[in-house]
Simulated scan of single mutants.
Amino acid sequence: MSETLAPYIALPGTAGDAFVHWREVLGGELDMLRYGDGPPMEGMPFTPDPQAVAHAVLTTPAGQIAGGDAMGQDEEYPVRGTAYSLLYTADSPERARAIIEAFVAGGGEVNLPFDRAPWGDWYGQVFDRFGVMWSLSVPA
């Protein structure tokens, strides 16, 4: 097996909907396991909701995203407003615009309009309806 690296996102109970939406927007193959799909997990410090996502992997044409529902958190689990974004490098400005439009149509909002950046590439940012920031880039 070769090594891989993928961002892993823990969402506050919205992972199932988020991963399905991301597959609709980006394409690819989705593998998702809910806690209720497997055997009981002995020794866990909490009892997970059987419908909560234990682990999901979306394999897109551009790479993989992994994640699941945050479990056992006593406080609000922040998604939006944190210091990260997912960088998706598209093969054309038209493809990047289509991705942004799909996120907006799905309840998201533009954070930075997609346009030529000072460094010469195309670049923009959009928050999806789950609060995840997507940075879209196209090399000059």
Rank of each mutant, 00 (worst) to 15 (best):
A15G: 09
M32V: 00
A15Q: 03
I99T: 12
G36M: 03
D74V: 00
A66C: 07
F103T: 08
D91F: 05
G27R: 15
A90Q: 11
G81M: 08
L58P: 15
T4Y: 15
W134D: 04
L86T: 08
S137Q: 05
E109A: 08
R95L: 04
P40S: 02
G28M: 00
G124M: 10
V25R: 14
D49W: 13
W134N: 13
W122L: 11
V20T: 13
E42H: 15
M71P: 07
P113M: 10
W22E: 13
D91T: 11
W122I: 08
G16Y: 02
A105F: 01
Y8A: 02
A6I: 05
Y123A: 10
L86I: 09
L33N: 04
T59E: 07
D128W: 12
I9F: 03
F127L: 05
L30C: 08
P45T: 14
G107W: 00
A70C: 03
A70P: 10
G38Y: 02
A117Y: 09
V138I: 06
A90K: 13
A52D: 09
L26A: 09
A62V: 13
L136W: 03
A66K: 14
P113A: 04
G13F: 01
H21K: 11
Y77V: 11
A15E: 08
G81R: 15
E101K: 09
N111K: 13
A52I: 02
D17Q: 12
V25F: 10
Y123W: 09
H55S: 00
T59A: 01
W22F: 03
A52H: 13
A15N: 11
G67D: 03
A54T: 02
R116F: 08
V110M: 04
G28R: 10
Q73P: 06
G68W: 00
P45W: 12
L33Q: 07
H55Y: 02
R80E: 13
Q73H: 15
Y35R: 01
V126C: 09
D91N: 14
P40Q: 10
Y88E: 01
L58M: 11
D128Q: 06
Y35L: 01
R23M: 02
T47A: 13
A56Q: 04
M133T: 14
D74F: 05
G16F: 05
G108E: 09
Y8F: 08
A62Y: 11
I100R: 15
G81P: 14
W22A: 07
D17E: 09
